[in-house]
Design a protein around this nucleic acid. Structure first.
Lengths: 338, 338
DNA sequence: TTGAAAGCGCTAACAA
DNA sequence: TTGTTAGCGCTTTCAA
């Protein structure tokens, strides 16, 4: 080992008095070497402060034991929670997680995927089912296993771990109807290349239709999934000629932003306008009034996706998954109209 | 190229009718090849759907153009904002960012660093200045450039991009004093291996001393940097024999959790208890009452750190940095005591 | 401006 | 259980 450069496995092997191959095995498959050999290698390793060279390992073995996940955003606490559970589970299964966000610009997804392919990840976790054809082509060309999360697509048969957004929206709309509302506005997020938003709109519409109502086009307000998006939605709703009695929001961030804007404008929630969210983030029960929302299985999605993707990589028996369940959490931001 | 396996640069070269070397140069240093060569290589590349093999490049060039950042948590919105700006700036400078979180368990920092060293990152961004010796040793052994962020350490001369937590806390405490408070409690976060929390406590104490006051030990309440931490802090404060008139929180999440717990317990904020935060996250102005807090330069920290680390890698002239500035934002959660 | 060729540090197949 | 060795796919001299 020339001074100043990092030690290599060869340095370790030399110091331990074993061959390169044995040193390699000692570190990768310790059960295949004699205990005494193992010990000498380990001693040499920490004597030299040796750290394995990942690129070299990846090049020789064609595996990185790394999984990539591409999210629409890292701002939303539900993703943070889910990523946490994904990464923890993967770690326990011997894999590392690489995360990236396309910031709700789905066209960036392909570029992120490309850069992960360059990196040599072993598999990919995607959010949702609405992806560019090029994404699936690249995945296919490189035989990369993948799993789609959050949404489930009953239609095509790609691996999914998630719940039915249609169903969740349907249930929330029913709760709203049961509270006596008929003037209903919705701020579901932005539907461009986002099947989850479209499913929310459809689910809401289905419930309304069941009650003989329809969703007015001008009360379908598309806004980003942010606090600010919620504020904008309220401005838009209050600016119109007539007012809804409830605003159903596509996530809790939008809902909390909406509540804040109502306060700003002197509109009492839920007295004058009811507001509901979706996801049930920690904050939902800490704002005033407490937010009525839909509880979704954030943690389960992460851990199940981890198991699913690893079984795909390692060719273990397919862990088939039925859609996870959601439930409406009634709190204070939805008022009963009598 | 055998079918089913990914195309290599050799396949590209063959298809383009040039040598391996030329193909490589066409992709890495296009200005060094004849335009016609470049064009043929590019055509071959997208004809084959060729994606470069990162590990092989890294092995041969000993560079990955990748920078690692290790954060205490990804839950706190200030980190999210700062990471965003760090990654954007690095991207513009031609580098990719790899992020990890040790979840406020500083002893995990070394392991994360190790795994980044294995990956072959070109440099590292750390949060704070309080790191294990082993961290600095590893960094030194592998000649890895690094920059510390958020905090500045006037003492040792390691590269930093941040602001003075002491100063920020001092200013907030002064504002609190100017509002007539003398019964002051503080929930600064957890001080173990976190110089930022210690600096906050010291800064607060310094301001109180200037007013002839001292911080009561039982009113220094260490809690995690979370909403739940804030709730705990309030329970503790309300459970004591006497009550403070103000609770100074170490970040906005703690403060918002604290406000929520107060509501739960029927304690009016700021009527019966004033609460202040730190960081000025977007949510701070959307909660009720609006949070008085300290504005910190989240975005600047990210972009300046990016420039700093890249100049360290590329050996460009040192971009010396003086501490960034902070300011108290007075809103509604701090009441004037008359 | 190009081609030829020598590695980068490791894994894995093979033989012993 | 171990040692030997042939690559993995690329960058980067070096010479032409």
């Amino acid at each position: 080992m020339t001074p100043g450069s990092r030690p290599t496995l060869e340095d370790v092997a030399r110091l331990a008095g074993v061959s390169l191959g044995s040193a390699s095995r000692a570190l990768s498959v310790p059960e295949q070497v004699k205990p005494s050999t193992l010990e000498r290698v380990i001693r040499a390793v920490d004597q030299l402060g040796y750290v394995r060279n990942g690129p070299a390992r990846a090049l020789a073995s064609r595996r990185t034991r790394t999984i990539a996940a591409i999210y629409p955003s890292l701002d939303n606490p539900i993703f943070a929670v889910s990523i946490q559970s994904l990464q923890r589970t993967l770690w326990d299964l011997g894999y590392q997680l690489l995360v990236a966000s396309h910031d709700y610009r789905p066209e960036r997804e392909f570029d992120l995927l490309r850069s992960f392919v360059e990196r040599g990840v072993d598999a990919v976790v995607l959010v949702g089912t609405d992806h560019d054809d090029a994404v699936f082509e690249l995945l296919g060309q490189y035989h990369l296993p993948y799993v789609q999360t959050w949404s489930v697509d009953e239609a095509n048969r790609r691996p999914c771990v998630g719940f039915s957004y249609h169903d969740a929206a349907f249930k929330m709309a029913q709760a709203v109807l049961e509270h006596g509302h008929t003037e209903i506005a919705i701020c579901p997020g932005q539907s461009y290349r986002n099947e989850r938003v479209r499913a929310r709109i459809a689910g809401t519409q289905a419930a309304l239709q069941g009650a003989g109502l329809t969703l007015r086009p001008e009360w379908i307000i598309e806004q980003p999934f942010t606090l600010e998006g919620g504020r904008q939605a309220v401005r838009q709703v209050l600016g119109g000629p007539s007012r809804p009695t409830v605003l159903i929001c596509g996530n809790d961030l939008i809902a909390i932003g909406a509540m804040s804007e109502c306060r700003e404008q002197g509109v009492v929630v839920p007295g004058e306008l009811s507001i509901t969210g979706s996801d049930d983030i920690e904050l939902a029960s800490m704002v005033e009034p407490k937010l009525t929302t839909v509880h979704v299985p954030k943690v389960e999605i992460g851990s199940l996706a981890a198991h699913r993707i690893v079984s795909l990589i390692e060719g273990s028996p397919a862990v088939e998954g039925s859609p996870l369940s959601t439930s409406v959490v009634l709190r204070d931001s939805l008022k009963r109209i009598t």
